[in-house]
Amino acid sequence: MDIFLQQLANGLTIGSMFALVALGYTMVYGVMRLINFAHGDMVAASAFVGLTIYTQVMGQATSLPAVIAIFLLSAVCMACIGIILERVAYRPLREAPRLSAVVSALGASLVIQNGIMLIWGPRMRIFPELVPQVYWDFGGVVISLIQVIILVLSLVLMVALYLFVEKTRIGAAIRASSIDQDAARLMGINVNRIIALIFIIGSSLGAVGGLFIGLYYRGITFNMGWQYGLYAFVAAIIGGIGNIPGAMLGGMLLGLFNAFIAGYVSSTWADAFTFILLIVILIVRPTGILGERVAEKV
């Protein structure tokens, strides 16, 4: 039983990181019908940006305000890069066939990944121990402070995002833009601004996810974005792409699924099973768990 609970705790921790990254995919898809393949690399970039802010701007301070400042500054930096990305890589192609935008997204992914390599080098960089290694043992199940922080902060961010989208006027504008951009424009919504906002929110959440990866695993490499991006993408599809609660649910489910497969079957098979799960979901429920069945526009 302890092993089951321990795997549950492990799964929830990585699941919440997947969910944060998956939100970036799903929000962009919801409004633009575009898979932003560069999102995973944005997450990786945020870990490097956070590390540089820690060493250069914060002077390696490890106090709580300094750590909060690292999170805020990284999120702001990544939000700016997100806006630039949208302007340069996606806006010029908004009227182009969808395939062109996907190719542009793949190109942007390579540019960011290689950019990280050129700036920070190809070697693994190591994150400082910003969160003290504190553990609690609950009768065999050990939970660390960093796991609690990741889980709680992720949940808070996700609930805040959900309330923002469901309860505010801007949230209503986001939902309107995702249903029909032209109609939204006719109703006086500045869709360009909404899309920029989507990129700001998605990139900042991704930045938090990237910093969590850095804080939790400590080692960061320039090409790690691909791995996390792929997982988050799968999570977004499992939950129903375009659906915000779906991305949260998908991320959590994927994290748990991964932990249990790796723990009870074999870590070698974890990836294979993840993609088998994806195929099964696509066959049984092509719109994902929470995705609504929408009539295809013909």
Partner: peptide
């Protein structure tokens, strides 16, 4: 046991080792 190099998350394997 075997781990996948660079996969970062080794807790599932380590949890079964712990048992």
């Amino acid at each position: 046991d075997k781990i996948k190099a660079d996969s970062q998350n080794f807790t599932p394997v380590l949890t079964s080792i712990k048992a």
